[in-house]
Design a protein around this nucleic acid. Structure first.
Lengths: 345, 345
DNA sequence: GCGTTTTTATTAATCGATTAAGCATTCTCA
DNA sequence: TGAGAATGCTTAATCGATTAATAAAAACGC
């Protein structure tokens, strides 16, 4: 009933634990273990259903073959899916992932980081939240390998894997403009995070490049914590402004969900009353009565590459920084249909 | 840069590691450590930013303060949310959770179980998949504490926390019948799992209790692996049968998503062409043009109770089995609107 | 002052596995 | 035949923390 250890096998075979360890680790050749006894040891191991104690292994080797994945918001299906990709990819490489969500809260993120560091994880993949720069510096100081995913800090030299948010947002804007929309709004988070800044910048540039004057009240920045109410207010304002908006970009999945709910409440028709393009991705976008155009981020590639970078970093910490920006792809659906294609009515 | 251990502190303080251990574990009183040196040790610990090595602690104590959560399908938001609840609740109790998804595959589930057992997790919360009874027996034999969540095996004596699926399904049926629907279909998984069997049983009883003759082609059992295609076929058949169906119950979230997509393709109007009630819960149900009626399971309570049971089990393995069935609540929306309330047209 | 507590701190075994170093044998070949 | 090589296995230190057993020093009693 109690656990079987090397010692138990050694005892039963009448040899030292060293021999058992050598054999079970496939080092019989290098360490010249007798063939007969090697076979016997393997037999006994199987017979006793031996499984090595990873704690002991890890303590000795300093490697846990585990890494931490700290995610800004696991209730966002985009991140949930990324988590899945990361987990699968890690498993393929013999690693276990411990996932934690900090819910966009830097303090929670600190706690998670500490718990995981104390559990001796070998490295981190992190989707950073606002005001968590200190945590990145901490990891750098302690020489703990990590890769930033989806969000990064331009002022800190780190490995990262992210989307080209400027480009994605620019493309979203251009797409709507080409569809004949000119008064275009953007609902984003109020945040200093670079990815959000870039999404706003891309949107503005798209307008500017088409000689559309940007109106300050087309851009609404809402707080994550009070998103539900703020989004309603934002839409109210945006729809009643002097330069009433005819198309709207949601900068994240969460904003889109809340926005679409309210748009339904208001009985606004998409796209005739309001065209929509959103970031994020989820089944909701397919199932909405008017399927939602969205920027598809290369989820699979993002996750896989992050794991790849991390594994490389752990193997060779002194190699140069690996940084990559991937392109998002606009998936055009009815919610942003060109005005010219609108059904009569 | 390298990690700070008890020994480092001991050296700096000029004492043995034992003293340091006592002090940092708050056992200064019982072990009568001198006040002066105790204070000094704490100072040095803080100064060196000491954090204990949990591997070493665990190896010694045999407790990792970690448990495994094996989930049948993490891409199902119902389970994703449960995972979140479990994680939060565990954290409150000082436990870390390692989550794994087996994607309804018993082999994968075995792998996960083994990985986690070898990592010496203290216990398991498991959403079982089909044909994984042997795994449950294995845990029982090895005396590893566990609690089954959401799904259980009536033939195996275990702790479990689940929903009363019979009742939920019965209620769904009755709700539709009261709304004036009589030809009612059910799309479920082809599975021997008890929760699915119960959902089918409840549905049939609801019909029977209202003197509605059950037609075999109202019930479609599809395979998880080929769900997308199977659901389409099922809906085609169900809508063209002799006794064409006018209302449909989806036994899971995944089935609902696929079903609704196809219903959109077919341009069927909900609820006039087809009324809907679904299990599972997600934002999609709110955002659908005709909000979907669903059975709300007590997600929060399920997760919390599972953790509670597990902690109790770990503390006191010999206490009796804890088993609980919780009630789901029908959330009525437009998708199952009573026929009498249909807008004219 | 000498034996007895009380107080305070140390020693060393332990958890389970790894691995460098060392000790016997047996083998090889000049 | 005997020095050196090859073979086969054991010893013991190590990872970092815990803790029972024990020792040393100080305080106390008479």
């Amino acid at each position: 009933m109690k656990k079987v250890s090397l010692k138990d096998i050694a005892q039963k075979a009448g040899v030292s634990t060293a021999l058992v360890s050598y054999v079970l680790n496939g080092k019989e050749k290098e360490t010249r273990v007798g063939e007969t006894i090697a076979r016997r040891i393997k037999e006994i191991a199987k017979e006793l259903n031996y499984h090595p104690n990873h704690l002991a292994k890890s303590l000795r080797s300093g490697k846990t073959h585990t890494f931490g994945l700290i995610i800004a918001d696991i209730s966002n299906p985009f991140f949930a899916n990324i988590a899945r990709v990361v987990e699968d990819e890690a498993k393929k490489n013999g690693y276990t992932v411990i996932i934690g969500s900090c819910d966009e809260n830097a303090d929670k993120s600190w706690d998670l980081l500490n718990v995981l560091v104390n559990r001796q994880v070998d490295g981190f993949i992190i989707v950073s939240c606002e005001n968590s720069e200190n945590q990145i510096h901490y990891l750098k100081e302690r020489n703990i390998p990590f890769v930033l995913l989806d969000r990064h800090f331009p002022d800190i030299q780190t490995d990262f894997v992210a989307t080209n948010n400027y480009k994605a947002s620019y493309d979203a804007g251009v797409h709507l403009i080409r569809g004949g929309y000119r008064n275009i709004g953007l609902i984003a988070y109020k945040s200093d995070m670079y990815h959000m800044v870039e999404r706003i910048r891309g949107y503005k540039h798209a307008l500017a490049d088409s000689q559309i004057d940007f109106h300050a009240n087309w851009l609404k920045e809402v707080k994550f914590e009070t998103m539900e109410q703020d989004v309603k207010t934002a839409i109210d304002e945006i729809m009643s402004a002097d330069q009433k908006v005819e198309a709207l970009v949601f900068a994240t999945y969460g904003l889109a969900i809340n926005g679409l709910k309210y748009i339904n409440e208001l009985r606004l028709q998409v796209p005739s009353d309001l065209a929509i393009v959103s970031f994020g991705q989820a089944e909701v976008f397919d199932l909405y009565y008017c399927p939602i155009t969205y920027m598809r981020q290369p989820l699979e590639m993002l996750g896989k590459t992050a794991v790849e970078f991390l594994l490389k970093k752990m193997k060779n910490p002194d190699e140069g920084m690996k940084q990559i920006l991937m392109e998002a792809k606009l998936i055009a659906r009815d919610s942003s249909m060109a005005k010219s294609a609108w059904p009569a009515g």
